[in-house]
Design a binder for these strands. Structure first.
Lengths: 348, 348
DNA sequence: GTTAGCACTCATCTTGTTGGAGTGCTAATA
DNA sequence: TATTAGCACTCCAACAAGATGAGTGCTAAC
């Protein structure tokens, strides 16, 4: 059976209606809703066909119809293929983001704003740095046998490590070590730091081999932490606005997942590798969501980029009947904003 | 009317029973529960008295009784006054905390463990540093007109600030500035840094007055941020285990409060100033909780200390029928653990 | 002072009834 | 041939009317 234009129109009408009300929608409703004049009976026939094709179902006999995952998929795909111009980063009044120093704070704020604007839950990963180069290391004595190692890597990511070295080094030794480390290591990635370089350094300053080891550990930890990317969430309580997500223990499960955050890593990973389009918007519907407790949800993700291949994901989590159009638009405009902010940041 | 020992025993029996079941408890139940043999009828008379005195109420005629805030208050007070020996920091197997560098991560982990152990929600504030002294400042050139300022204050709190100074300073200038700043500022609190010292520094190095200003701003921001103490929460989904907290919109409100975190500041503030006892355990019951959306909850707080007056709060948030005994014990033992960890940290 | 007995209350559960929304089918219509 | 009106049918949701039972307060006996 073919999906002619009329059937498609009816399907979309059902989806949009269900989006608004959350109730199964019947033939009379659609009849009034459509621009073309068709009687409920005709609609019924078409709906019967749509059901047979698997785009809609009845929760029970004599109820209206609701869209299936397949129905949503069709709708979303056709929506995404109408590639609208990328929604110029309008002067959204809600978007007055104060300049914050730390990228992470900016991202968390972003998640909050998105949650407030969309009425769905949001997640956002910290930036993921791969093949990051070391910019420089700065050691400072702290007294009490402690040494502060500040590791700065490409993209101006700063990490602090307090090292316990058991002895207090002289000011001069620290200076010498600083010099030694920086002249040997700066510009290298984690993979570049070979055993050869390490032994060379230890040769040059045999006295502090132990300290060098500890510093290297700190460096490694600072650069190679791309497997535990932090995930932040916001707007979790928004799910209470959608009864289909809160029945039974669902609310509890969902909130737990959002609090634990680890399971959300699946979403990041599943879409992780193939980022091609500008912001690489991806939509997961129902069973497609790679998180067990979210099979009643849909998730829309987008990728942001800080430049130099450093990137992360933003995700919007809502019921399957979420307003995909609005979510995609909002996400796209947000991404543009982010791009501008990060550009400015790099330019300065 | 006097509250004789028998009445008290009955009250406590009601509280404990209600704790376990969450259902109003009747006279027959108590009759079986008590060690002394009393008939339900006798219990009923006593319960009638207890109700008149305001320690218990009936949700409706012909239901059992449940404790009032006043009832809980009596119970908790008597419990706390039986000052048990402070529960030696038992080798709790769940307490294998990995050494983490950053205090905040440790605290968040602690919140998580506490939530898992108690089955209530937990909150924890980051440490609050007052009259903190500056330990040292470390400036490093980052290129592109940027300067990295690492500010280390008492308690080994490290803050990074990236300053935009618009020009690249020479290595020597940076060294000179470092020396100038540290010799003039280290050991001082925010209040100690007078205009006199500032102008003296600018005099000594007139060339970089602008940079000095920016560094001082960064220092000020790093030290004087005691008004926006971060608050972390964990175990929010635990509230779903207590039906009395999840009826109607209550779950949504509570979860929102726990996510927003700001309202929780009230709890910190209300108990903030008078920390006297060892860990200063405080119990807020129902209406006593200074957060609007938590009038159906009880909150138990304790104070931890990192030494030198640097301290923060841990709070357990549960239903009014929470197991106060267990919570207080757990909290006390946790605090002892924390003390040990921080002591070790300082000793090393 | 304590207890047994009893009438009474009231939330909860069960069962039956009804109303209405929505469907599928058939026959009439354009 | 596609559309529509009409009608019987289904089934959920809401309501009402008992039935159940846990628990109480009161009174009278111990």
């Amino acid at each position: 059976m073919a999906l002619d234009e009329r059937k498609q129109k009816i399907l979309y009408a059902i989806i949009q209606n269900y989006q608004e009300t959350g109730e199964p929608v019947g033939s009379r409703t659609i009849s009034k809703y459509l621009d073309v004049k068709l009687s409920p009976a005709t609609i019924r026939n078409e709906m019967s066909d749509l059901e047979e094709m698997g785009y809609i179902v009845q929760p029970h006999t004599s109820a209206g119809r609701i869209p299936t995952d397949k129905g949503y998929r069709l709708y979303v795909d056709s929506m995404l293929s109408e590639k609208k111009l990328p929604a110029e980063p309008a002067a959204d009044p809600a978007f007055l983001i104060k300049r914050v120093d730390r990228v992470e704070e900016l991202l968390m704020q972003m998640a909050k704003i998105l949650a407030a604007n969309t009425n769905y839950a949001t997640m956002i990963t910290g930036p993921r740095y791969r093949r990051t180069k070391l910019k420089f290391i700065q050691l400072s004595p702290m007294g009490e046998g402690k040494l502060l190692a500040v590791v700065v890597s490409e993209g101006n990511i700063v990490k602090n490590n307090i090292l316990d070295i058991g002895e207090d080094l002289s000011q001069d030794s620290v200076l010498a070590l600083n010099l030694l480390l920086n002249s040997n290591l700066s510009g290298l990635t984690i993979d570049d730091i070979s055993l050869e370089i390490i032994s060379k350094m230890k040769e040059e300053d045999g006295e502090h081999a132990e300290v060098i080891n500890k510093v290297l550990d700190a460096v490694a930890e600072s650069i190679r932490n791309d497997d535990k990317i932090p995930i932040y969430t916001s707007g979790a309580p928004n799910i209470f606005k959608y009864p289909e997500l809160t029945g039974g223990d669902k609310a509890s499960e969902l909130i737990s997942t959002l609090e634990e955050k680890e399971p959300l890593g699946n979403i990041v990973r599943s879409s992780g590798e193939e980022s091609e389009g500008k912001h690489d918007i991806q939509v997961y519907i129902g069973d497609e969501v790679p998180v067990d407790s979210m099979k009643d949800c849909s998730v829309v993700t987008a990728t942001y980029e800080l430049g130099d291949g450093v990137q992360g994901k933003i995700g919007i989590i809502g019921p399957k009947r979420m307003d995909y159009q609005k979510v995609v638009d909002t996400l796209q405009s947000t991404m543009s904003q982010l791009d501008i902010i990060f550009q400015d940041d790099n330019k300065e």
